[in-house]
Amino acid sequence: MKPDIPAVLEDVARKLRETILPDLKGFQANMVGMTAAMLDMTAEAWDGAADRLVQENAALATLLGQGSALTGDPAFRNAAKEEAQDLKISTLERINDQRRRALIALQARIETDQSAQALNSAIWDELRASTERRRVTLANF
């Protein structure tokens, strides 16, 4: 789409803040202010959303494969078997959710096992990286 979606969203958000918001008060002002902020958040996430999910899903598949190798349980590898047939965000998010649920089960199983600490550390590394990928500039932290 042209003009570019992030640029349009950021511009609409700015106009809401600068031309609409000053004429409002109370609940309406708050709602429009939040709407503008949500447009900014969408603009920030838009361009990289598919790339972020592809990266994350690949990292999760690697960890789940390692989990199966370590535990001997194929369930973890199997949870990452489905490959995305397209790059729709909804498809990638569904697969992401499946893999993150499997990761919860894997970490719960190995985190107190001293012999699995390398994998546990790798899981934490990926979880930390995931929060960097998902970071919202407007957030307080």
Binding site: D97, R100, L103, I104, Q107, A108, I123, L127, T131
Partner: peptide
Amino acid sequence: GAEPITRA
């Protein structure tokens, strides 16, 4: 959606 950090 899955919350692996929260669940840990």
